[in-house]
Each structure stands twice: as structure tokens, then as C-alpha cells.
Nucleic acid binder design. Structure first.
Length: 603
RNA sequence: CGGGGUGUAGCUUAGCCUGGUAGAGCGCCUGGUUUGGGACCAGGAGGUCGCAGGUUCGAAUCCUGUCGCCCCGACCA
């Protein structure tokens, strides 16, 4: 049974191309770089208003409606309750929330425009980039008893983010369509259940729309929270690196990925001798210290980086051969952090970058530090070389346990492909992906800030445990195109295609041709398909090219010759062969083919 | 915000270096011939060359500023 919940917004009969609006282009727009972006425009799905701002013209809107409806069905099935929140938010809500400092950087203000009547003043309204700050106060006000939990509210609506750099059409836009859901549970177990229910709903959503999306472990970023998965569509043009191992099933965003590089049972090396300073004039890079006459391998060097977290400098120590994965610093709990400037480093460490170290007693103003955080992998060094906090000097025989004043060990390095998987020991691989969905177990971060509590059956007041969930609907549309196209155009999966069936009428001026088109359309519709009829007075070549470009899964062709022979042609967009179908068999055949199309979506 | 690029008709663009008439293809309009994979012929409409200053007898072209857009970096669905 084909679901047609959106039928109230679309008339339940075939559309004529000439009475619709599908402006296709032969040439790609100059500002489109990647295939899916070019096809979005060429196939008449979107038009650009400005950077990261797009109009969904009718064909594109139909795809959005289909994705929206399938998403709605799956989230409903998982227990979601749909609502609709304002897009304009009082800024005070955000100021009260836990992430104003970080979030404000991507938020649009919604003041009076230009010389509007209020004139320039501090922002009072902002456009919503996401809605934790709106839903949490609502739930706080409305839900006070354990009897009313759990609840999972969602909406499918526009989001506004002032991305510093919009990119690739809908891929990273300033205004985009997102399904955002927020779960509220009485306790952690419940929150995990809600989380897993949503994870399952996401999996069915992406399966139903015909997108190959994989769930990978992810960083929690500015959202905060305890754990999180991203749904990634593998694609070269994606913004993210996924580290994975096929056999073990491990998959994580590179920002979050760990490896089994450091054995769990690694013994710390005993000191090899006294710490010894030695002159290294002009040596300010790992590479220079690797070279003669010093010849210290990078994996025997300590790399000392200085960051500033919430106004206070802190140190991160890595192996010389490793790169910092900056996102992992998020685990340290600072609400805002950045790398330190030269001016900030010298007064605290006593030297310039290139000669920095964290050996006890060499730090000029250790009291000013917010901590010394070391990557686990430095334990592999045991005894190594680091900067002496004296310009032009390094120190050797530095022992990790004896000599470094480490506040806390952690995982801060960027994993490289080829390292052993933490589960199986097999080498990790890397591939690019487009993030189309993200789920977070938030914990009580927002409920604490907004006082979202409930009373349990012991009359105790408890914080609600939250989760939040997003699917980039508009981005998903583009990701599907990126994943499913060929040199001729889009190859829509059945369930997100703007129409299921395209009837190409090669001689629309012949009344019998249009009569047959109506008959076939009726039969296809009866079978549950959406039908578009190309009744344009164009040459066949133009129609076929456009048909391939807009990528409707099933194409029926009515031509003058076939009309005489009493047949029409049937061709799938993703297959080469053309079937000639006698008119007498039309209804039965279409029922079969439409059912087949609908079934591909559920594979 | 840093780096690189770019802005000429609805779209794709030539011309810019070396200043002097803005040109093509697609699309659009009219007429005709065509009609199974982006037809052809004839005619036609459509451009403040992003914007503002400057240099010059003269600026699409050179200079300055500014704005938009695209790509690379940090960020995100």
C-alpha cells in the first residue's frame, strides 16, 4: 500500500507538463561545482536567491514533500508528536541557555530592518538555528509529572544558520529544512530507549527513501551531551571523514574516532636518565628536530600546544608525529576554546612556540594554566624530547610519568587510516561522507538550565533527561542526487521521486495519443503512482533528454508508430532496456511495474 | 574572518593583457521546413558590461574603493 499522506497538498490526478513548471537547463550554472548541485538547478528543482538561499520550485518542492512525509511517518511510528515552533526567538531564551556564547556566532538577528522604526539597538530577536531553547521551557511549563513522560516532540521546519561559508547549493545553506525532535525522559534508561527508537526510525527513514546512510559515532559539538551518532551518506564531496572498518562494523566521524594504537595493557616506561637540556638554536619545528644533527624521530618528541579555554590557557601534549583533533578538546568541558595567540603563550610558558614543553618546573607561570592535558599516545614515547621553555633549547630524557605535570590523559589525536581498529585490530579505513542526520543523547544539560523537572512517584523532583535529533531534509534531497545520478541526470529512488511515472507523449497534437496518455495515467494512478505527462510540443530528443535529466523512475512513451501498432513503451530510468507493451495489457502491466517500483524502496 | 578566483542579455560565455562599433551559442518571439535522443532556415526582441569614484579626448578594458557570487580553511543538518 503506497502511502499518500501528503495527498491533501497535491491534487490526486496526473499533472500536465505544460500546466506545471519545470524549467530545465541544458547547461550547468556557472556557480555550481558538484554534480548534485548542478542537477538540482538543471533539473528544475531549485533556484538560487543568494548565497545559501534557495527557492524550491515546484518539482523540488514535491521531493521535499515526499521526504517530509516519509520522515513524519517514521518519527510518528517511533512515538514522536508533531508540533510547530516559532522561527523568531526572543534572544533572552538563548542567553539563558547553556550555549549562547558558541551559538550566537551562527545566529541571525531579527531586528527591525535598516532604519526601521526601532532603529539600531542590541538584538532582541534571533532566528532559530535549532529549538532546544524553545522546547525545553515549553516542556518545563507543561509537564510536571512522571505520568506524562516520556515525550518526544518534533517539527519539520525551516532552520536559519548564518554559516560563515555556505557551500554546494543545499549542502550547507543559510536557510534549510530540518526535522528536529526533542525527547524528554524520566531517567537515563528511558533516554537511551528514546535514543535507540530514534536511531531505528532514522534507519528506516533513510532505507525507505532509498538513501544509503550509515550511522557513525560522532562528536557532540556545540550541542553537548553524552553520546551521539551521525548518519552519513558516503560521497566524495562530503564535508566529513568517516573512519571505519568493514569487518568489525566500527564507524566514527574522524572528529570522534579512536584507534587501538595504544594497547590497553601498556606499561609506563621507567625513566631512562636525568632530564638534560641541550641547545637547539633555530629549531622550532618537529621536522627540524628530526633532522641531523639532533635526529630525534617525531614519534619520540612531545608536541606541546597551547589553547585558551573560557579565558584561561591550557596545554595539550601530543606525540610529535600526531595531529591534534581539535573537536576532541570539547571533552574537556570548556564552553568556548581556541588556540592561544603568541602574545598569550610567552608570559605563561616562558618561551615561544617551537621551544615549548610541559616538564615540571620549566613552566614560567604554571599557576596561570587551566590544566595540562596529554594524549594517551605519548605514553608510547616513554622517554622523549620536548621544548625546554627556553628559546633555543630542548630537553631529552623526559619521562612521561616522572617529568610531566599532567592533569589528565585523554584521546586528543587525529586517527589515521591504517591504525588498528579498537575492536578487531584490523586496519581502519577512511572515506568522505555527507552528514544528513544527527542524534544526540543530551542528558540534563538543557533541563538543568531551564529547570525542566518532574515529580516522580516518590514525590521527588528530578531533572528530565533529554535527547535531540535532526535530519537535514533539504540536504538529504541533494545527498540522494549526489548518490544517485548518471551522466544524463538524476536517477530518483522511487519514494523521493517528484513523480513516479513520466508519460512522454511524442505527438501530443494527436487526440488519440492524449487519450491514451490519460488512460495510462489513470491506470498508473490506480496502482498508486504519481504521474506526470509530458505533453509539450517538443521534438522527441528534447523530451527524452529532459526525462533522463529529471530522473522520474518509470517512463512510458507514446509515439505515433506505437500507437498504430497498439503498443506503448515502458522504460526504467535505471535500466537500459525498453519494453513494448500491448495496450490491452496496460492496466495489469502498470500495476505490476508500479508495485515493483514501490518495492525497490523497501529493499 | 584569512587565502584564491570571478562579475558582460534569462542561461553559458568571448572581448580586458595592448583603451576607440559590446559579439557568439543556448533560450525567447514571428514565419517556414522538420519530428524516436537537446533540428534547420529566415527574420526579430533583449545588455546602465555588479555598483561608485578616478585617469583619459574617449573606459567593459587601466587605477581606487565597494558589493555580490564561487572555491580552499575553521563550523554544521
Amino acid at each position: 500500500m503506497l502511502r499518500r499522506g501528503w495527498a491533501d497538498s497535491l491534487p490526486d490526478f496526473m499533472k500536465l507538463w505544460t500546466q506545471f513548471f519545470i524549467p530545465t537547463l541544458k547547461e550547468s550554472p556557472a556557480d555550481a561545482e558538484i554534480a548534485s548541485h548542478k542537477l538540482l538547478v538543471r533539473a528544475g528543482l531549485v533556484r538560487k536567491l543568494g548565497g545559501g538561499l534557495y527557492t524550491y520550485i515546484p518539482l523540488g518542492l514535491r521531493v521535499i514533500h515526499k521526504l517530509t512525509q516519509i520522515c513524519r511517518e517514521e518519527i510518528d511510528a517511533a512515538g514522536g508528536i508533531e508540533l510547530w515552533m516559532p522561527h523568531v526567538h526572543p534572544v533572552e531564551l538563548w542567553q539563558q541557555g547553556p550555549r549562547w556564547a558558541a551559538a550566537r556566532e551562527i545566529m541571525f538577528r531579527a531586528d527591525s530592518a535598516g532604519d526601521g522604526k526601532r532603529g539600531p539597538k542590541d538584538p532582541e530577536w534571533v532566528l532559530g538555528p535549532t529549538h532546544e531553547e524553545v522546547i525545553t521551557p515549553l516542556v518545563k511549563a507543561e509537564i510536571t509529572s512522571y505520568r506524562d513522560l516520556p515525550k518526544n516532540f518534533y517539527q519539520i521546519a525551516t532552520k536559519f544558520r548564518n554559516e560563515i561559508r555556505p557551500r554546494y547549493g543545499l549542502m550547507r545553506a543559510r536557510e534549510f529544512i530540518m526535522m528536529d525532535a526533542y525527547s524528554f525522559d524520566a531517567n537515563d534508561d528511558g533516554a537511551i530507549k528514546s535514543y535507540l527508537a530514534m536511531k531505528a526510525a532514522y534507519e528506516s527513514f533513510f532505507r525507505r527513501i532509498g538513501a544509503h546512510a550509515i550511522a557513525v559515532e560522532a562528536d557532540t559539538g556545540v550541542m553537548g551531551g553524552s553520546f551521539s551518532h551521525e548518519f552519513m551518506v558516503p560521497a566524495e564531496v562530503g564535508d566529513d571523514d568517516v573512519i571505519y572498518n568493514e569487518e568489525s562494523g566500527y564507524a566514527a566521524n574522524r572528529e570522534k574516532a579512536t584507534s587501538g594504537l595504544v594497547p590497553a595493557d601498556l606499561k609506563d616506561a621507567p625513566p631512562a636518565g636525568a632530564v638534560e637540556e641541550f641547545p637547539t638554536p633555530g629549531v622550532v619545528t618537529i621536522a627540524a628536530l628530526e633532522a641531523a644533527p639532533y635526529s630525534v624521530p617525531a614519534d619520540q618528541q612531545f608536541k606541546t600546544l597551547v589553547y585558551v579555554g573560557d579565558g584561561k590557557p591550557f596545554i595539550v601534549i601530543l606525540r610529535g608525529c600526531d595531529e591534534l583533533e581539535e573537536a576532541k578538546l570539547g571533552a574537556l568541558g570548556f564552553s568556548l576554546f581556541r588556540s592561544a595567540t603568541l602574545e598569550e603563550i610567552e608570559p605563561v610558558l616562558g618561551a615561544k612556540p617551537g621551544s615549548l614543553g610541559a616538564v615540571k618546573g620549566t613552566i614560567k607561570n604554571a599557576a596561570a594554566l587551566g590544566g595540562v592535558f596529554a594524549d594517551e599516545a605519548i605514553r608510547l614515547i616513554g622517554n622523549g624530547t620536548t621544548g625546554a621553555n627556553r628559546d633555543g633549547f630542548h630537553a631529552r630524557n623526559v619521562n612521561v610519568v616522572r617529568d610531566l605535570a599532567i592533569t589528565k590523559f585523554g584521546d586528543f589525536r587525529r586517527v589515521r587510516p591504517g591504525e588498528p581498529d579498537i575492536k578487531s585490530g584490523k586496519p581502519l579505513q577512511v572515506r568522505r561522507g555527507i552528514e544528513v542526520g544527527h542524534i544526540f543523547k543530551l542528558g540534563t544539560k538543557y533541563s538543568e538550565k531551564f529547570g525542566a523537572t518532574y515529580t516522580d512517584d516518590q514525590k521527588q523532583t528530578n531533572l528530565m533527561v533529554m535527547g535531540c535529533y535532526g535530519i537535514g531534509i533539504s540536504r538529504t534531497m541533494q545527498a540522494v542526487i549526489e548518490q544517485s545520478h548518471d551522466t544524463d541526470g538524476i536517477v530518483w529512488p522511487w519514494n523521493c521521486a517528484p513523480f513516479h511515472v513520466l508519460i512522454c507523449v511524442l505527438d501530443p497534437q494527436l487526440p488519440e495519443a492524449m487519450d491514451l496518455a490519460r488512460k495510462l495515467a489513470a491506470a498508473a494512478e490506480k496502482a498508486g503512482a504519481d504521474v506526470l505527462v509530458d505533453d509539450r510540443a517538443e521534438r522527441p530528443g528534447v523530451k527524452f533528454k529532459d526525462a533522463d535529466l529529471i530522473g522520474i523512475p518509470l517512463r512510458l512513451t507514446i509515439g505515433g508508430k506505437g500507437l498504430k501498432e497498439g503498443i506503448f513503451e515502458l522504460k526504467w530510468r535505471n535500466q537500459k532496456d525498453v519494453a513494448k507493451v500491448p495496450l490491452a495489457e496496460a492496466e495489469a502491466r502498470l500495476a505490476t511495474e508500479v508495485a515493483r517500483g514501490a518495492a525497490t524502496a523497501l529493499r
